[in-house]
Design a protein around this nucleic acid. Structure first.
Lengths: 115, 115
DNA sequence: GCAATACTTAGTAATATGACTAACAATCAG
DNA sequence: CTGATTGTTAGTCATATTACTAAGTATTGC
């Protein structure tokens, strides 16, 4: 269905460059909170907020062991979003109504232009 | 690059269900502002705001002819977002570090010293 | 011309977002 | 135990988002 409620959350989560950077970093392997914060130039609590959102969106998972929390990607989490986009692409490309074509079709009244 | 600034806008735009619904509607063909507002149950100005965002994100284009504005999809506008997701998918799947595997690798030091 | 139609602008309000600092809690190293 | 490391919580603040209403402009049809 086009009404996937989880899509809101996933797209919203991906909309932030800091979070995309975190995902990109995690794509190279698991990391701790401090590891993730370092290149961002952000304060730890800020990064933590982003991590919470990423986790709530199901994009990552984390566990705490001792005093360090390790974060890793959750494979397949992007599938619904990818799926939606693919669906759209097919629809969009399937019918290539460009706007001007459409407008042309409206004035296409076979009447041989009086006046 | 992972730093695509346009991705912010596109993902942000897709994060709203009303806007996704508008896109889904437009995938079936161009429509006027009023057409798009009707099924949403929203006030016209609200829909207009969404349309402006969609247009700023490059996802649709609109033209006014007489007193009606017609909206249509802009094909290919999703490409950068799709591209980012595809890139991520490859990375994520390429290395299937699940979190527990990683943690296991850390404690690989056989701790024969429980209790 | 006049009224209905279709959109627009402006202003408002509730809520969400993303950043910070300060202070706390829980480990680990020596 | 003590202190450094790592994370967490709480509270604040500026800005953005998304909705609304009310009032405007521009076209079209009679």
């Amino acid at each position: 269905m086009t009404n996937n409620q989880g899509l809101d959350v996933v797209f919203q989560t991906l909309a932030d460059p800091t979070r995309r950077a975190i995902l990109a970093r995690l794509a190279r392997g698991p990391a701790t909170v401090t590891d993730l914060a370092a290149p961002s130039g952000l304060a730890l609590p800020t990064v933590l907020q982003h991590l919470r959102k990423l986790e709530e969106a199901g994009l990552i998972e984390t566990t705490k062991q001792g005093r360090t929390r390790t974060c890793a990607l959750r494979a397949g989490a992007l599938a619904p979003a990818r799926s939606w986009m693919e669906e759209q692409r097919l629809l969009w490309e399937g019918r290539h109504d460009r706007l001007d074509d459409y407008l042309a079709s409206l004035t296409d009244t076979p009447k041989e232009s009086p006046s």
